[in-house]
Design a protein around this nucleic acid. Sequence first.
DNA 1: CAGGTTATTGACTGAACACTCAAGAACTGA
DNA 2: TCAGTTCTTGAGTGTTCAGTCAATAACCTG
Lengths: 192, 192
Amino acid sequence: MVRPRGFDEDEVGEGLLAAFWRHGYARTSIPNLTEATGLLPGSLYAAFGSKEDMFRVAVDRYVSEIRAALTSELTGLAALEHVLGTVVRLTVKDRERRGCLVLNAIPESTTLSDETRQALQAGLDEMHQLLRRHLREVATTAHATADIAQLEALCFGAAVSIRVLGRAGQSRKLLQSIADGATAAARRALPT
Amino acid sequence: MVRPRGFDEDEVGEGLLAAFWRHGYARTSIPNLTEATGLLPGSLYAAFGSKEDMFRVAVDRYVSEIRAALTSELTGLAALEHVLGTVVRLTVKDRERRGCLVLNAIPESTTLSDETRQALQAGLDEMHQLLRRHLREVATTAHATADIAQLEALCFGAAVSIRVLGRAGQSRKLLQSIADGATAAARRALPT
DNA sequence: CAGGTTATTGACTGAACACTCAAGAACTGA
DNA sequence: TCAGTTCTTGAGTGTTCAGTCAATAACCTG
């Protein structure tokens, strides 16, 4: 009774993510998106509605991928070290040094709709919570005396700066030093 | 023999900075700039050459202002604490939460000319050096055993993340915790 | 195989963009 | 006051943008 979609939604989503990740929201044109997805403008709009809708698809995909990459089986300081190490690794292994889709888009968010801005906020919050969870666990098992909120903030800040400075093309050595500095700070602040 | 400029170069520079700081490079239109400066397109182009040239004027102004704001008479850990505290204060007291012009522009820099990209890199490097100078001094006066490069990186990362998360609208409390976390880490790592 | 529904196509629209330029205005030095 | 130079003006240029739509193609059900 109907004609089915001629494209794979997953592949198209991956194409949208690739394009927006490289160029950001505003500087990604519809021609860019047709090239990245293989779909023509009409199909894109029929399937998604608007350019911002396409962007939110990319953001959702991105956050899912990050969530998967940063979830760890480890506990305690080892988990923290592993997570920050993963952030460095993800940042550096990307030859294009695209950094974090969400953080890259923050400066643009003032010109986007409420819905899109909220999607970006939610993505940022989720990454924050992801780190908090690891550190809360460290704190409870260590009967910490140090200010845990400070450590949480420091480690979140470390992760954020690694992603941002990664896009800025800074050396792997610097990014790794930020990660190492944060874990060293946690180690010193917490009784083992 | 000649007709003099009918505008104050300083005021126009301030207008360019205000506009680019709020909207970034790409999303600042020439009409935006004419409104911010009071000059018409022809005058802007006659005076500066191109939109990117105008942007570099704004970047230079911005870096100068930051340099002035972050230069401190203090020494040792007090200097570090003061500098990071100033970063928090500058970030939070801006009602528009514009963050850092240079960091905001990093994601856009791939689409800019080499000259502009280098200007942004130079601005970032200068801010990095500014923090390094404070910490090197801390290290030499304290006969540190800790890894100074790590601490430098951690504090630079803290400053970067404060600016970025400031633009993202995060609470003053979080930003201050990042600063406090970094100074606490320095205090713990260095013998006093 | 045929009717009905949906997907795809790609030329098209109006708006916004960065940038230009010919004309006129404003000032200085003589 | 006037000649000479530079500055200012703002309409205009060609391009690119996000988004649309009438026509056509593809598919499923009966």
